[in-house]
Amino acid sequence: MPYEHKEGAFPLRQWIAEQRRAYRAEQMNGRRAARLEMLGMAWSAADARFQKNLAAARVYYQEHWTLCAPRSATVLDKPVRQWLSNLRRPGALDGHPEWEAALEAIDEDWNPSWPAEWQRHYTVVREILAEESTLAYVEPGVTVHGMDIGKWLARQRKPEVWAALANGQRERLEAVGVTPLAAVPVLVPEGSAEPSTAPVSAFERGVAALAQHKGACTGSVKVPRAHVEALPGGAEVKLGVFLSNSKSRRAKLTDDKLAALAGIGLEWAVMEGAV
């Protein structure tokens, strides 16, 4: 507010200036300072700017679950990405531990030691798995905030990519149930030059498990949600979860996936017009 601003006859802006002077001179007791801070008092112009940008950062986090914003991110007319980038520079927060604490209170990974793009993808995976509780849902093609999360996750789980991640990155992935894929050996049956056709993707394993379950249960495709099907070779599939997720995502499944499920006998997977 301008220096001459008044509330009625009370010179409010002048009074605020006097409170700031007393605070800087350490002439204000802690109780008064706390009461003013509860009303949003910023003790300096820098603090005021920080609080305005922090409000924008808080809004961004509520929408995107991370403060690792892309270059173009703007919230409440504030270039939040550029502001955060400036604060990540060495020495930018020197003398302002309260600023750093405020940012960490919003997002403890606001300044990761790995690329911000990686953190953005991981954050979405974390939120998806917190809701769905299964990796089978996060397949290539699952897109959130313009990012192909399924494709990214499949890449992180490759043994060679996993080994190249920082310890902190692996720890975060493991905390939400993501582990590296075991190297899949190419098996050549005795007397044959053809490689094994064992299913390797999550969807293929699900289809194979469903077909196996149907055969073992005399043609039934009814599966309890908690049922786990063991495939030859030791792989286990949470078949009930796979079936439930596939049905709920029918509109997003490709024609070949629907055809594979319909071929096992799932009526809901039959495409319109199919004979």
Rank of each mutant, 00 (worst) to 15 (best):
R49F: 15
I16F: 10
L210Y: 00
R58C: 06
L39Y: 11
M41Y: 06
K214N: 02
K158M: 11
G30P: 04
V138C: 09
A17W: 04
L253S: 08
R88C: 07
T179Y: 15
H145F: 12
Y60M: 00
R49I: 13
H64C: 01
N167S: 08
A163P: 03
H145W: 11
P189Y: 11
H121M: 06
E132T: 09
N111T: 04
A42G: 11
A154S: 09
M271K: 11
A9F: 13
A57T: 02
E132K: 15
Q212D: 00
P2T: 11
V176N: 09
A45M: 14
D77Y: 02
M147Q: 09
S246I: 10
R35Y: 13
Q19S: 00
G265C: 03
E131Y: 15
R126E: 10
F242Q: 01
D109T: 11
A55D: 13
P90T: 00
M271G: 09
G91I: 03
N86Y: 08
V186I: 14
G30Q: 15
A164M: 03
K247F: 14
Q62A: 09
D255C: 05
L253D: 08
F10I: 05
T254K: 14
W110I: 04
T66N: 07
E7P: 00
G234E: 08
H227N: 02
E127I: 07
G150Y: 10
K6M: 14
R88P: 03
